[in-house]
Amino acid sequence: MQGIVDAFKPLHDLWLAFEAFMVGPGSPGLFGYWMVIALMMTGFYVVIAHDNLVKKIVGLNVFQVSVFLFYILMAKITGGTAPILAEGIKVYSNPLPHVLILTAIVVGVATTALGLALVVRIRNAYDTIEDDEIQAVEEEEDR
């Protein structure tokens, strides 16, 4: 058991170094949020710049994961542990955002499924899943 723990030691050290970089005196401690924003904007870009509906849903998923990460980042307390009560541990990370995000993930997949179902239905009706082609078909029908 201890061997396994030791095997992951370098990885843990790496994480500690990263954490020190995020909260250290030199850095503003906001790097995590910036990463989240970068992810969020990538998802946003995919949603608005692509015509393919499946791609749009993937973009929404990326956006969604970035929001989850944002919540979890806020919940973290340096030196805290996972919020499961145990002897001799005083500092726990904030459990409330975990609860919110836990349910949000499952709801997210349910709504994703609903979106994909709509895509399949659109494909059945229009024979395409590209936004502009759907519009072209619509205009054709109007004429």
Partner: peptide
Amino acid sequence: MPRYGDRIAPIH
């Protein structure tokens, strides 16, 4: 925003 891992952030 409060700093990452800050334990006096209002959320806690």
